[in-house]
């Protein structure tokens, strides 16, 4: 760095904190997936197929989560049903 750089130098951004935060989140998610039972992806797919017979949904509309609280495991299913007009469209 020379004297000329002083005039054009921009402050460097402390982006390491952002990187760390993002890693915390993504790694926690990946650990859950890795530690989850093997049947989870298949369960999700089959649920999706059953529901798709009756309502028009997309893959992103169904969320399957397995959480552990001590000895207790909670399987959480969250299915976002489409708006009314879409529903009638598939019914017809």
């Amino acid at each position: 760095m020379s004297i000329f750089d002083y005039f054009k130098r921009k402050p460097t951004k402390a982006t390491a904190a952002i990187a760390k935060e993002r890693l915390h989140i993504v790694m926690a998610h990946e650990h859950r997936v890795a530690n989850g039972p093997d049947y989870l992806p298949a369960l999700k797919r089959e649920l999706m197929e059953v529901i798709a017979k009756y309502v028009h949904i997309q893959r992103k509309d169904i969320k399957v989560n397995l959480e552990r609280h001590g000895d207790c495991e909670i399987l959480e299913l969250n299915i976002a049903l489409p708006e009314d007009d879409e529903k009638t469209a598939t019914a017809n």
Partner: peptide
């Protein structure tokens, strides 16, 4: 300067 992950991180 906080632009690179530290050892502690």
């Amino acid at each position: 300067t906080g632009e690179m992950l530290s050892l502690d991180d």
